[in-house]
């Protein structure tokens, strides 16, 4: 057997599995999306139908807010953790990164424990002011949930980027007279740019497509994944849900592809 043949044999199972359970189904999804009562215009419904459009805008705004908040939080914490050595640092890092692969459902439940009807924040506010603050089931609860699973991932990326940063760059800027703030502004933050783009894109795409958290919080928060789910299971509106999923997939993919062309690294969503 030649080496060429062997390489092809190695590749064959992957090609078969991917075609059968990914490419074919996605093609089918595209076809179903185009063959409903609306025909091809189903793909435009995400923009033309006011209800869908509002949901779409909602989802994008929420994902963008999550991304920005996560980046700010993770940059402050990541820079701090990578730049200082103090007792308990390893524990702190572990605490900030262990929720890395928690599924969305669990995150939703954790948000309920924090800010739900029997939640900690409600209990504290009740004790302090006699008023029970409950926001887990609102869009702010969903925002918190998305923050919860974005923070660990982004902190890890930023810490890795900070570690790779040449300390000489900062020392050089200081030797040229730059104040600590100027060093951050002119040297550190620009150098972290690719990491911001990469991890921000992941946070954004993940928040766009996250379903488990919204599902657990289970109120009528209008986000795209929930809309697709209800159209499919409750309204049995296959073509619209197919078209919306394609739209969602294209947006998420485009954001990541764009980020990748910017930062040159491997960028992927998860969860």
């Amino acid at each position: 057997m030649s080496h060429r043949t062997f390489v092809w044999i190695c590749l064959l199972p992957l090609v078969v599995v991917t075609i059968a359970f990914f490419l074919l189904p996605i093609a089918q999804l595209v076809v179903v999306g185009a063959t409903g009562p609306r025909g091809l215009s189903a793909y435009l419904a995400i923009l033309t139908e006011p209800r869908y459009r509002a949901t779409m805008i909602n989802t994008v705004v929420l994902a963008a807010a999550t991304t920005i908040a996560t980046l700010v939080i993770a940059t402050i914490a990541g820079l701090f953790l990578q730049r200082h050595r103090f007792p308990g640092r390893a524990v702190l890092i572990a605490m900030l990164t262990f929720p890395l692969a928690f599924p969305g459902v669990v995150v939703g439940f954790l948000i309920i424990l924090l800010a739900g009807r029997q939640g900690l924040i409600g209990a504290i506010s009740n004790a302090v002011s006699g008023e029970k603050i409950v926001f887990a089931y609102s869009i702010f609860g969903l925002f918190l949930g998305y923050l919860y699973f974005s923070i660990p991932r982004v902190i890890l990326t930023i810490m890795a980027a900070v570690q790779k940063l040449d300390v000489g760059l900062e020392e050089a800027a200081r030797s040229l007279g730059a104040s600590p703030w100027a060093v951050q502004r002119d040297v550190v933050l620009p150098a972290l740019g690719p990491a911001f783009v990469a991890s921000g894109a992941i946070a954004f795409a993940t928040a766009m497509g996250a379903f488990g958290t919204a599902f657990t919080l289970a109120t009528n928060i209008d986000v795209l994944p929930m809309l697709i789910y209800t159209e499919f299971t409750l309204a049995a509106n296959f073509s619209i849900s197919a078209a919306l999923s394609i739209g969602l997939g294209v947006i998420a993919w485009a954001i990541l592809a764009l980020a990748r062309s910017f930062s040159g690294g491997a960028v992927a969503a998860a969860g």
Partner: peptide, 13 residues
């Protein structure tokens, strides 16, 4: 002080 580093530490941005 003017300083030249072994890695040069030129600002890539």
């Amino acid at each position: 002080v003017g300083m030249v580093f072994q890695s040069y530490a030129l600002f890539p941005n």
